[in-house]
Nucleic acid binder design. Structure first.
Lengths: 340, 340
DNA sequence: TGTGTCTACTAGAGCGCTCTAGTCTTACAA
DNA sequence: TTGTAAGACTAGAGCGCTCTAGTAGACACA
């Protein structure tokens, strides 16, 4: 086999020769730093274009003191992670950083995903919905800025950026109580990131509403679990809850879907509030009342946290936590109870 | 600010010193190539572990002739792309390659996404659902192996890996015809990758069924467009189609959702077939009859196509096309018509 | 004893950039 | 005229690896 990398293989040297300048000057031009006259700059760019040259980012990052890259792990297929990625690209770019993505799948656990990023010598790590043990994270955090997004972790030098999950559920329950619901169930998230806090928020809201009855339905991250919960729900409907606060939108959607198929009406027979505000929630035919997590602010806070640590390197500071306030988005999946 | 990269900064040199061997030997051990005795190997590994050393992949890729990386672009948030990524990780790994991901979002078009990968000196590119013009792709394909996944492109040295979209729609329509439907609408995909072929398949199937009436509903990629199509559909229901073949599952799901909200029953009043077989389609409460695209086989074919070109480099061969046969998955969203 | 073959290891020249410490002009002030 | 300062440019030593060419030593064989 021929050497796949040998094909053409145009380097700065070639561009320099063609433009009749030194390699260093080409570097200056491509980095966009001052030190080249306008005419030479154009000549270099022209030569590069003719050769279809583009700088080698491996070499560039190696030669540079700073790599100017941020490593990001995310769950492949998780739609809210996708929303975050989108905003992360924007905010990292604004801060002059590139993103290096590392996907987590069933066959590619978090540890190798993170290792890849460390080997890439990213300057900081942003782990979305990471479930690694705190001790593990602390070890990594000791070496470079690390922020856990969507999951609260108590570990040295590990910053956390998350939505105020408890407040989110207080909003959801408060909304339902305001509509007159007296029996509100929680479609639970189990061990998923944020689930503990949401449970806590649910309970505190019930207490605050005068000690309403608590009902936990086992739920989960996807429509599947929501739909499963609907099964048990429709049975005991007569004496059951009149409203449900779900762990997330997907779960809520699955629940609604199945509950409707069993003849119940939403919101007439049962009101449902989601969590996340994924794009589907806003579709007119869905119109899910939900608690919005602000992907853009979360992403901004994550990038900012990394930048802050980068600037105070060497002076280990206590972990910070950016807790973004969620927002209730009222749409059509909730109404006063008992409108039979 | 301190130099963020200066922190510890452990190199092979440090490991070599600690283990009492040369730098080259450490390299040998970490690459896992023969040339080190078992005892030294262990000593080196131990030294590395003590220092928490891990090889710098930038430097490694630069020094090596081959980078052993495959660049992948994908649309952030597209769930079928996520399924493909998952399988791509597996197949690339099996071929001894690493993946470099580059996400496409609203603010990050395909061109910069691809440029990043080229700058990274990937050995080959896998573009998922890429919409760049053929001429642009041909220019890139002339320099390195390039495969377009999910989208048919006729361009020199650009391989294509896709599902047989036309056959998929023939399966869908055939299934509906078999159930007795005489008037089948296509919920169209417009300019989305694969949409043209599916339209073609739809038409040829109608012809083959004896020239059934053609009805095109404007659709799209998401639930939103499916739901919108449902609006017009329910109006003319009396004389309208009894079945719908949708561009994809999400679109089908949106359609079903909205059509149900308008009082129609699926499949009793209208049968619906999707396309893709995303994970939600299989959920029991959804049970969508659909045409499955095999993400794993698509991913395998994509990696294989790149490998094939890598092996015959220098001898430009004609573009190949791997057309993966789709499979009809019959679930509960279809039934014979007129069961009112 | 010499020759050859193995295995275990090392020296050192790359890989394609960056960036510091220069050199060489030219301009302008004193 | 000299001094000096700014601007445009270059030489060359890294960055942390890889990998070829080579050395040293052990062992076998004639």
């Amino acid at each position: 086999m021929l050497d796949p990398m040998a094909t053409d293989r145009i380097t700065m040297e070639d561009v320099a020769a063609r433009a009749g300048v030194s390699r260093a000057l080409v570097s200056i031009v491509f980095r966009g730093v001052p030190g080249a006259s306008e005419t030479t700059r154009e000549r270099v760019l022209a030569a590069a274009a003719e050769l279809d040259y583009r700088p080698d980012s491996r070499a560039s990052r190696l030669g540079r003191r700073r790599t100017r890259t941020l490593g990001v792990t995310f769950a492949v297929g998780a739609s809210f992670h996708g929303d975050l990625l989108q905003s992360l690209y924007t905010h990292a770019d604004a801060a002059g950083y590139e993103l290096v993505l590392s996907g987590v799948t069933a066959d590619r656990p978090e540890v190798p995903a993170v290792e890849t990023l460390l080997a890439e010598r990213c300057e900081g790590l942003i782990l979305i919905g990471c479930t690694l043990p705190a001790s593990h994270l602390a070890r990594i955090g000791a070496r470079l800025p690390l922020v856990s997004v969507l999951r609260a972790v108590r570990a040295d030098s590990v910053d956390v950026v998350r939505t105020d999950d408890a407040a989110g559920l207080r909003l959801a329950v408060g909304h339902l109580v305001g509509l007159g619901h007296q029996h509100i169930a929680l479609l639970d998230g189990g061990r998923a990131p944020g689930a503990t806090e949401r449970r806590r928020g649910y309970r505190s809201a019930l207490r605050q509403a005068g000690g309403l009855r608590e009902t936990l339905l086992p739920g989960g991250l996807t429509e599947l679990e929501g739909a499963a919960a609907a099964l048990g729900f429709t049975d005991r409907q007569s004496a059951g809850p009149t409203a449900v606060a779900a762990f997330n939108d997907r779960c809520a959607l699955g629940f609604i879907d199945n509950v409707r198929q069993h003849g119940l009406r939403v919101p007439a027979d049962v009101s449902v509030v989601g969590f996340d505000d994924i794009s589907q929630a806003a579709y007119p035919h869905v119109a899910l009342t939900t608690v919005r997590q602000d992907a853009d602010r979360l992403a901004a806070a994550a990038v900012k946290a990394v930048m802050a640590r980068l600037e105070t390197l060497g002076k280990p500071s206590p972990p910070t936590a950016s807790v973004i306030e969620p927002e209730l988005v009222v749409r059509s999946s909730t109404s006063p109870p008992g409108r039979n």
